[in-house]
Design a protein around this nucleic acid. Sequence first.
DNA 1: TTAGGGTTAG
Length: 648
Amino acid sequence: MPPILLPPTPCAVNSTSRTAGDAITHRNRKLTTRRQHCRISVTTSCSSSPLSVAPALIANDPTARAFSALFKAASSPSPASPSLGAQLHAQAVVRGFLRDGDNTILSTAILNFYASCREPDLARRVFDRMPRRSAITWNALIKGYAHAGRRDEALALFRCMTRQDRVAPDKYTFPALLSGIGRNHGGGCVRELGGAVHAQVVKSGLDKDPFVGASLVSMYAATGALEDVKAVFDDVDTLDPVVWSSVISAYVNCKDEEGALITFYKMLCQDIKPRQFVYSSLFAICGSMSMLEMGRQVHAHSLKNITNKDAAMTNALLTMYSDCGCISDAWRVFNSNDIVDVISYNSMILALGQHAHPKEAAELFRRMKFSGLIPDEVTFLNLLSAFNHAGLVHEGLHLFDSMMDMEGIEPMYQHYACVIDMLARSGEIEESMKTIKEMPFEAETPLWRIVLGACSKHGDIETGMKIAKMLFHMEPYEPTNYILLGNIYARLGRWTDTEKIRSLMEKRGIDGDDAFSWIEMGQRTHRFGVDDRSHPISEEIYRNLDRLIGSIKAAGYVPDTSFATHSTEKDRREESLRYHCEKLAFAFGDLASPSGDTLRIMKNLRVCGDCHSAYKYFSLVTGRKIVLRDNHRFHHFYKGACSCGDYW
DNA sequence: TTAGGGTTAG
């Protein structure tokens, strides 16, 4: 097991207050009020907002200008709660600052505040009372509706602004509008609407503006239209780093990781200094592809170029190391992070869960609360998942039951799904079915598939058959349903039925995902399929694997042919397991790296049970640590045992 | 008043 470094207790909240001075500081913003004498500072890792100083401010008989400053501070970058804003708004009304709506500065600040905290209807009420409208107020209102996901209303406002009020859109209008269009994630004629807005951009002569360009890029990226992204990129001022970071993130969104890396290199060639945003995207790529060496290089690059790290970049770095199988590096990043926020904790709790450290995850959860940060629904989901990975059903159910009581968080569909998975996987199939019936959501097919998989594992054929029948009806062309049912038959030794399922798939033209594994070695990624002989040193790899299998058999390994699904004869079944992709990847890694080195291997699907057993023996006979990432979690093999405790 | 990045069942 890799050493787990315990993090120091973070001190997240630091509120000093109410002494001399007249400044309110929030995330490097300094605002000055004139009459009131209160000084309150809030650190960046704090979950409170500038509005928490509102009572102190109000008690000091503030000016309209002080109110404006407070609303402005509360709007960005993390908007405060709308109810607090509403209270302050009421105070401003009581003091007569908004009589006839004629205080443009204060009204605009309140309008912007409501727009930032996604309360566009409240923003609209302020807007409607303002006697004078300008591009600034229109832009704020459009942004409010767009950010709240109310695209059609944002578009209607844009038409009102330009046609009825005859206010010309400016460089602030289009980013607000376009973000609302892209927010729909490609659904509902986004491309058509986006194209129409793009035409307006060109008509307004704003197509060279970097902010507008960045918004167009992200809108087109949301529709998957990489060609349009590139066209916009060609038109705008490409010396602006923001546009480059938008394009890199567009490639990431469109799953073109190579394109993102090439764009990054081009950016460096043009001497454009990357900012935090770019590194965040690159860390996400390296993590998702498990490119540890590349990730380390990008990390080193960021250390040279970024002096003011921010939470998002550091959290992306933490996740990158975890995704690459390096949980102790993820801990190091977490420890060195000056700015620890809720997402930092969530990311680290998730990482610990995936790497089979449920106790540390629970301890971190306690420390998070002790630090003053308030866990959110993702925190609970990640901790539930950590318990699920370890089979800690009792702890998981207790956490689930206490979510509402502890933090008032109503369990969402994902929380129920996690608990149902937890019950089913531990063999409580009946209880999991009961929870599905009782939960306030309709179970979706992936959840049914989880229970079907558990039925296969625990031999509950009756329930499994019922679920399979239902799934075939709901999704007749989903390969996993066929594969899971085939597995149930295979586990029972009903090879004829297994073959029937396979031929049914063939007849219907359904292909399952091909399994493949990969390993990074010598700055290259080596990929292996099942029975794959395409590698340049394939013969040596197969020879090494045969040798390794001989060694592990001598150490006690017995091939588990119940995981073979392709054949009816025992010998052939054993043969079909021997050259699984993850075994080939290990045999290659063992051949290509110095003895004693840790091997990090990835697989696109869940690790097969026989390979899991073989890996334990591989770690025993070679003395290597092996980290295997499948599409589910991490397995750390060492000295003949796995961190998952054979529960996965 | 603008844009772009980080965590979320398996």
